[in-house]
Nucleic acid binder design. Structure first.
Lengths: 148, 148
DNA sequence: TATGTGAGTGAAAGAAATTTTAATTTATAT
DNA sequence: ATATAAATTAAAATTTCTTTCACTCACATA
C-alpha cells in the first residue's frame, strides 16, 4: 500500500519524498476522520517537526489531485480532508452526515442518487459528472442532550 | 416586503438601519444569483460608498440567522449567499447544480430526497434536520466547449 | 557509485478572507 | 428632546492559505 503510493507518484513523474510518504501515512492512520490542514500538520509535527505547514498544504493538494484524498467542505466553510478508501482500485461513492452539535462528520455509502443524475440532467440540460450529498442533524450522543 | 423586513428586525429586538435595508434590497434585486460578500460589497458601494465591508459581513450573517439569506459553500471553498425565496412564508427546499467550467450556480427544486432522510436516519441513528445536495457538471453552454 | 539537474522543501513573506476593536454615530424608548 | 444601548466605520488584527526564493534531495545518466 505504501509501495502502491510510490508507484503512483512515479507514474505521474513525481518524486517520492519522505514528506509525501509521511503525510499519506498520517492520513492513512486516521481513516474515516475528517481533518483540517492544521490538524494534519499538528499530527505530523509530533514525529516530524521539520516538516513545514506549506508542505502539508502542497502535499494534500497533490494527494487530492491523485484521488487518494478527498476534500470536504461543509456549510461551516471549514476545509477538511479524508483518506479515500478504495475497493478493488475504485473509490466508492460516499456522502457525509454532520452533527450540528458536536461537529462530528461520518461517511456513509449511497448509490440511491445515481439514477437521480439522469433526471436532473434532463431537467437542467447540465451534463452531470458528480454529486455530493450532506445530511445535517444530531448524532446519537448529542440527540439525547438536544432533547433536554 | 420592505415593511416585512422592518417588522422582522423589530420583532427580534434589532434596529432598523439603512445599511441593513440597503443590503437586503441589493440581494433582493439579485434573486437567483449566488454572490460572494465581496461582490455584494461592490454592488452596494456603487450607490452607498459609505457602507463598509465589515458591515456587509455582519449584515449577511444577520440575514442568514433570520433565514432571509442562505449561505452556500461549494467544493471550491468560496462562500456565497443567495436570497431565500419564500412561498407562503415557507422557504421551499432547493439544491444547487454547479458548472465546473464557468462556475455558474443554478438552483433547482427537489422533494425527491425528503423520504431519503428517514432511511438515512434509521441507518445512522442521526436525527436529521436538513440536507444539502450539489450536482457538479457542465452547463449547456460549456458542454459544447467541453466536447471539442 | 558519483554527479548534474530540476522537482521539492522550509521559512518567511505575502494574499485573501473574515473578524475584532474602539471610537463615533444612530435608532428608538422614555 | 434626551439618554442609552445597539450599530457602524475604519483600521488593525486574525485566520487561513499561497507564493517566493534560497537551499536540498531524488533520481536519471554517465
Amino acid at each position: 500500500m505504501n509501495e502502491d503510493f510510490k508507484e503512483i507518484l512515479k507514474s505521474h513523474g513525481l518524486k517520492v519524498t519522505n514528506q509525501r510518504i509521511v503525510v499519506l501515512e498520517t492520513l492513512s492512520r486516521h481513516k474515516g476522520e475528517h481533518l483540517t490542514p492544521e490538524e494534519i500538520y499538528e499530527i505530523v509535527k509530533k514525529e516530524h517537526p521539520e516538516i513545514g505547514l506549506a508542505t502539508i498544504y502542497r502535499t494534500i493538494q497533490l494527494l487530492c489531485q491523485l484521488d487518494l484524498v478527498e476534500k470536504v467542505v461543509l456549510v461551516d466553510g471549514i476545509v477538511r480532508y479524508e483518506m479515500v478508501e478504495k475497493q478493488k482500485g475504485k473509490a466508492h461513492h460516499h456522502h457525509h452526515i454532520v452533527c450540528l452539535d458536536c461537529g462530528n462528520v461520518e461517511s456513509f455509502e449511497d448509490d440511491l442518487l445515481e439514477n437521480l443524475e439522469d433526471a436532473i440532467s434532463k431537467k437542467t440540460g447540465f451534463e452531470i459528472v458528480n454529486h455530493e450529498v450532506k445530511f445535517y442533524g444530531y448524532c446519537n450522543k448529542c440527540k439525547k442532550k438536544h432533547i433536554n
